Amino acid sequence: MNTHAATDAAVTVRALAADDLDAVVAIDAAIEGRTRRDYIERRLAAARREPAAHAQFAAVVGQSLAGFILARVLAGEFGRRRPALRLELVGVRNDLRHAGIGRRLFDALDTWAQRHGMAEMRTAAEWRHTDMLEWFDSLGFDLAPDQIVDTAVEPGSWRPERDGPVALEAGEGPGHEIDYGRGEANDHERVERDGADVRSMVPEDLDAIARIDRDITGRDRHDYIAARLGEAMDDAGVRVSLTARRDGAIVGYLMARADLGDFGRTEPVAVIDTLGVDPEYARRGVGRALLAQLFANLGALRVERVETIVPQRDLALLGFLHAAGFAPSQRLSFVRAREAGA
C-alpha cells in the first residue's frame, strides 16, 4: 500500500481491544526485530484489570490494524500532586509510516488526557533514538527537569556510603515482566542487609508504609501506595515490593518493576518506583539493606540493570543513589505540559 493512501478519511481511531493482540504483536515485532508478545499481552491485561489507569488506542485502515498507542496514568509517581499520563509505546505498520497515523493516535490520546484532567504527558527514550526524539519534538515535548540514573546489577559490587529519609518516585512504563519478587539471596549480600530485616510486602503493611511516606512527603498517598501494592499481590511478575523492619516495626520500603517495552529497550531493566526510609531511622543502613535485597533478587533472575528517575533539584537523593553506584543513563526524560486553559 502507498504510504499516502491512508488519508484522514480512511483512518479510524478507536479503543484498543483484546482481539487486537496478535496484530499489535506483529507490528511491534516488525519494528523491533523480535517478538515481545508476553510484554504486550501483560500491558493489555493490565488495562483490563485497571481501565481507569490506562489509555490505549488503535488506528484502523479498512479492516486491518494500522497502528497503536499505549499510555498509563501516573498518580503518585514523580512526586506529583496532579495526575499525568505516561506515553509508553506507539507503533505504526511499516507500509503506512509517514501517513500521519502516529499523529492521529497521539491526538486521540491527548483528547483522552484533557478529558480526564491530566496535567501533562511524560515519556522517555534513549538519546540515540533520533527518529523518536524528532517525533517527540514535533508533538511539543521538552526535556523534563528530571534525571534518569541507572547501574549494572552486580550484587555486592556497589558502594553504599550513606542512607537518608528518601522517597523515590520513578516513571511508569511497560515491562517484559519477570517474577523477581522472590527472596533469593546469598551470604555475600547478607552483610549489606544487616541494617534491617528485609522481606516481601504484604497487605497488612499498607498503613505503616503510608505513614512513613506521609512523614517524608508531607502528603497522604495512601490510595497510590495501595494500588501499587495491589498490583504486586495480583501479579508478582509485574512488580516487587519489599519492606525493611527494625525493632519490630516497618522502617522502610521499596517498590520496583520490570521494564522492557519502553522506547529503545533491548533487555530487561528493573525500575525503582518508590523507596522510603523512616526519618527516625536515617543513616542506619535501611536504604542500603533494601537495595541489597533488590540487587540479590535481580542478579538471581539475570536482570542486568536497574534504573530510576529523580528530580534534578533533589541533590540528597541523587547523592544517595550515586553513592550506591548509579550514574546518568543514556535515556532522557521528556514532558509535555498542557497549555493554560487547554
Score class of each variant (00 low, 15 high):
A227Q: 15
N2F: 14
L143S: 09
F106L: 06
L70T: 01
P145D: 13
R115A: 14
M201N: 03
L298F: 03
A316K: 11
R211C: 03
V73S: 10
A185G: 05
A270V: 08
H222G: 07
A29P: 07
H322D: 04
R219A: 08
I216T: 06
H188V: 13
A327S: 13
P165Y: 05
L143T: 02
Y253R: 13
M1V: 08
A324P: 01
G173P: 10
R283T: 03
D187V: 15
E77V: 00
Y224H: 15
L290C: 07
V92W: 05
A52V: 15
I178P: 01
I212Q: 09
V73F: 12
I40A: 02
H222P: 04
P279T: 10
G218K: 12
L133C: 07
D28M: 05
I250Q: 11
A323I: 00
D163P: 10
S329L: 15
V306L: 06
D8V: 08
I178A: 03
R36Q: 06
G285A: 05
G91T: 04
I272C: 11
G218R: 14
R42A: 12
A99H: 04
D22T: 07
D314H: 07
R190N: 07
A185L: 07
G62H: 05
D278E: 02
A6V: 12
A244L: 07
A327I: 11
T151H: 10
R245Y: 06
E126L: 05
L206I: 01
D163R: 03
